[in-house]
């Protein structure tokens, strides 16, 4: 159950639209299903009243949308940012990906979003409607006469269970109270994978990635994947549409992508959220974050604008490359 309501957000958006602070609103819009909330641009109060949604499925991180929207749309855009979204927001600013002047950022509190896969695991398929009542979700399906009541805490998304921060690191205006960086156990699962033998680990990833259908949703949702021309879409890169030599080679896409965003990934978890095959892609990125923290000291991408990530800065105290190699050897 969110502390902030649709009505409060609607009122704020309407006010800023009406008084001319912003010319449009980037918010969550009605999708095909109640859990299928879609990022939408609202240009009038009327559009907002008809289509604006806020519920436990508003996980989408809007930061990335600002790259294209600020370039295309006239005037300022109002964007609602949950605490974790603000890290991506800052990271994109660090990379000069959009004009800060064209954005009015409203920080909103977040109590964690629900994972529809977890809901379906309890309710089964054929969800017709999901309502919210206090800490409970009421799920109506096509096959059950009575609504199924689920505790929201039971279906929290993994990234929300291991929420890294309730603190907004960027905003023009904050609704609700200022939160803090939270103590999370987000690296536990990575540590579990590290403890495996190389063969076990390979088997784990082969099993997970074998489900990949290369829909590119992870790339398209990732706020760190904002290249003008993605290497996988670029015929002159020499790697686009390369036919895989074996069934697993194509899955290296994910490992290449993890390298690509290493040091810039804020661990927002959008990759895993949007994956239709429920592959825990965020674990690849978290492994990089964990390694970097251990090798070069704690670093959180996007915690501030303009910070130098450890992989693109050099100090004389930096770890010798041999140390990294030795650790790999010991882990093997």
């Amino acid at each position: 159950m969110q502390k902030i309501t649709r009505e409060q957000l609607l009122a704020k958006a309407s006010e800023l639209l009406s008084n001319g602070t912003v010319s449009c609103v980037l918010g969550w819009g009605l999708g095909e299903f109640d859990y299928d909330v879609t990022p939408t641009i609202f240009k009038s109060v009327e559009e907002l009243e008809n289509g604006f949604v806020f519920n436990d499925f508003c996980g989408a991180n809007f930061s990335k949308y600002l790259v294209n929207k600020t370039a295309k749309l006239e005037g300022k855009i109002l964007v609602f940012l949950k605490p974790c979204d603000t890290y991506s927001f800052n990271q994109l600013l660090t990379e000069h990906r959009f004009d800060r002047e064209k954005v009015y950022a409203v920080g909103i509190p977040c109590e964690g979003m629900a994972d529809i896969a977890k809901v379906k695991a309890i309710s089964g398929d054929g969800i017709a409607a999901i309502g919210s009542n206090g800490d409970k979700l009421t799920v109506t399906t096509l096959y059950d006469d009575e609504a199924i009541v689920i505790d929201t805490n039971e279906v929290l998304a993994e990234r929300c269970i291991n929420c890294k921060s309730k603190k907004h690191v960027a905003y023009d205006e904050l609704m609700g109270e200022e939160g803090d960086v939270t103590q999370s156990n987000r690296f536990d699962e990575v540590a579990r994978l590290e403890a495996m033998t190389p063969d076990e680990r390979f088997a784990f990833w082969q099993n997970e990635l074998s489900r990949c259908i290369r829909c590119n949703a992870c790339r398209d949702a990732c706020p760190a994947c904002t290249c003008e021309k993605c290497v996988f879409d670029n015929p002159s890169s020499g790697v686009e549409n390369k036919s895989p030599a074996n069934s697993f080679e194509e899955k290296l896409f994910h490992i290449i992508r993890a390298y690509h965003v290493a040091g810039r990934c804020t661990d927002c978890g959008e990759c895993s959220r949007v994956c239709p095959q429920n592959i825990p892609l965020h674990l690849l990125n978290r492994k990089f974050i964990k390694d970097m923290n251990e090798f070069y000291g704690e670093y959180q991408a996007g915690a501030e604008v303009g910070s130098r990530a450890p992989l693109v800065s050099y100090t004389t105290e930096d770890l010798e490359p041999g140390e990294v190699f030795n650790r790999g050897e010991n882990n093997a």
């Binding site: 290249c227 003008e228 670029n234």
Partner: peptide, 9 residues
């Protein structure tokens, strides 16, 4: 420049 994101890295 067609591929450059202008990220300053």
């Amino acid at each position: 420049e067609l591929m450059c994101n202008g990220c300053s890295s």
